[in-house]
Amino acid sequence: MATPGLPPLPPALKAIQHYLKTATEHEQRDQVVAYYCQLYAMQKGMTIDRKSPDCKHFLVSLMDLLEKKKQQLIDNEAVHNEMVGQAHVENYALKVFLFADNEDRAGRFSKNVVKSFYTAGMLFDVLTNFGELSDDVEKNRKYAKWKAAYIHRCLKNGETPT
């Protein structure tokens, strides 16, 4: 899924695709989450490749989008104050994680649970925008990613997760 307003993602930047997709999915639901997902994608993209013409073109366009968005969200403190933003993203990520965890513990396995664990794992990644993760967040990040992969594998193979 391409991000509206951005050129096609160059193959070299495939690693940031899911963060951009999560941002697009949250554009209507939670603009703060969407903004910080794109900021994370920007920073990660810059470490991967910002020299080749197609990557540079993409990253400059993403930067234009972020600057524009920050101007538009002038009254949103969570976007303009990163400490408030961090608390916002962390609360949201935890909410998604707890939903998936509760479903999992109740034995209700579905694609939705896989997606929630997966999204929570990515949102915990996004929290590295704000510095080193706490031990608890780091633990949840690893657990969410492992659970998403595990339940996905079970569903695919017709097995019941344990």
Binding site: Q43, M46, R50, K51, K56, L59, M63, K70
Partner: peptide, 29 residues
Amino acid sequence: GSTIGTASSTQASTEQDELSQRLAKLRQM
């Protein structure tokens, strides 16, 4: 050849700095 190479790297380096500068500015806005 080497002069062109040097010019290109200098240009690339300046452009990289611009992206980093914009990122730093964005996060301070």
